[in-house]
Design a protein around this nucleic acid. Structure first.
Lengths: 168, 168
DNA sequence: CGCATCATTGAGCTCGCTCAACCGTCGTGG
DNA sequence: CCACGACGGTTGAGCGAGCTCAATGATGCG
């Protein structure tokens, strides 16, 4: 309903993969099995609406609409996951950063991003290290493609075309 | 129904990410948007059953069961995708190969794998190169964890515990 | 037998990682 | 109000896992 959350998966030695950042309106936490495999953490003051799982398991005709919405939500999650696998498996560091910024701008409907997430969060989302993320931002800024505000609190995308060109 | 298929996504310069290998009984090709973003290709003689999309879009009460199956299938695809993102984002080459072999053995319910896919397919699935895949197999064989048959047509998993230990 | 395809192996390189120092901002307590 | 410490971010130097390029080997098919 407001705020921001990430969901992640952990490896035994604490390597972390952040699946997705969730903002207002996003649905998350849909798991199929008996146990939850994902962790979730709020990265700023956040309010979420929680629905008990049995709601989704009902098959009564009256819930046909809800069921359809569930299918839609799952479908979106899935295509986003596929997109992200393409990013993780194929793209270079700069391409990953550019793609990340573009997708964020697209989802927030704004070319000025105020990022609640840290460099470490971004790194774990993109399969990079914190230093590589930082260096990539610096590089993009030097090229004039983005502009970081004071305190690195916000990022303005200055050249969408350039960013799209960077993203393969 | 029989055979083997992979689904993949392509980048403009023909870098490829193979999402998943599909075998008998697997459901694939569920896309949410108006256009298909995935390619699919059979890697051996294959027979598939095709269902027109509108079947999944019906919300009539009679289709409640089908709808439930759809949700289940989507849920499985999603959790598999999440698992694969963890692999792509966090794991090393050897860990990727070990995880891949284990998951294949698990899905085929057999520790002897006859692989229809090529080294290039595996590489594009795991975000590696063909040479790294080859070297990893050689390494695992030297360590006695696997055994490759003549012509590299099959791979026997000799030490499941060792492989699981390699996979983080 | 000859060619095509796929796999292996080696040598060298590079992108991104590791390790380490430093900087800026903010919040807290003297 | 300032000093200081904590935290997150930046930058540099060097390293190494995995990539590139190239040669060689195995298998199978016409």
């Amino acid at each position: 309903m407001s705020g921001a959350v990430w969901t992640s998966r952990l490896l035994s030695d604490s390597r972390r993969q952040i699946d997705k950042f969730h903002f207002v309106g996003d649905v998350f936490g849909l798991e199929s099995g008996d146990e939850y495999l994902c962790s979730a953490e709020a990265i700023e003051d956040t309010v979420v609406a929680i629905y008990p799982r049995h709601i989704f398991e009902s098959v009564s005709p009256a819930d046909a609409v809800l069921s359809g919405q569930l299918v839609t939500a799952l479908g979106h999650s899935l295509s986003r996951a596929r997109e992200h696998m393409l990013l993780l498996g194929c793209k270079t560091a700069i391409e990953k950063i550019a793609a990340f910024l573009l997708s964020l701008a697209d989802r927030l409907k704004n070319t000025v991003l105020t990022r609640p997430m840290t460099r470490l969060d971004i790194a774990d989302h993109l399969g990079l290290t914190i230093e590589t993320v930082s260096r990539s931002f610096t590089h993009l800024e030097r090229e004039g493609l983005i502009e970081t505000g004071t305190g690195r609190r916000s990022i303005s995308l200055r050249d969408m075309r350039g960013l799209r060109q960077l993203d393969a």
